[in-house]
């Protein structure tokens, strides 16, 4: 199923923080990791600006690591502030999911809705 771009934009910083909490990563590797968990349509152009913002916010720290296979890679890792941000956003997300889950009815079907007056009353 294709992801909704707006929804993804909202949760992407949290997912990035979560992935980097598990293991430090450089930009492209992080995109691949996120694609592997199911965000197959995720583009690098969506992730890099978020990484930049998180680093500016102080949620991430980075270091350059020389690579034998190409140019030096910028590895990102979570800062203490980032860990706090991850805790907070995860708690908020779980709270929101619980509310949405409670508020959501069954998935609508293609059958036309029957007016209440025509519904058969139980005897």
């Amino acid at each position: 199923m294709q992801q909704d771009a707006q929804s993804l934009r909202g949760v992407l910083p949290m997912l990035i923080l979560s992935q980097l909490h598990r293991a430090e990563s450089y930009g492209y590797e992080l995109v691949v990791r996120l694609q592997d968990i199911g965000l197959s349509d995720l583009a690098t152009g969506t992730v890099y600006p978020v990484l930049s913002r998180l680093e500016q916010d102080g949620s991430l720290t980075s270091r350059l690591v020389a690579s034998t296979a190409g140019p030096a890679r910028k590895y990102y890792t979570l800062s203490p502030a980032g860990k706090e941000a991850l805790k907070l956003s995860t708690a908020r997300w779980r709270y929101l999911v619980a509310i949405v889950h409670m508020g959501l009815g069954p998935i609508p079907t293609d059958e036309p809705d029957q007016p209440e007056s025509l519904r058969e009353e139980p005897k």
Binding site: Y28, A43, T44, G45, S67, P71, R73, K74
Partner: peptide, 27 residues
């Protein structure tokens, strides 16, 4: 800072796949 970072990302990305896919993915 952004240009330096994107240049590095493109180089790393293009080493793993081709330059056209890399730039398409950046938008």
């Amino acid at each position: 800072s952004i240009l330096r970072e994107i240049r590095g990302n493109i180089k790393v990305d293009a080493a793993a796949r081709d330059i056209d896919t890399t730039l398409d993915s950046l938008g």
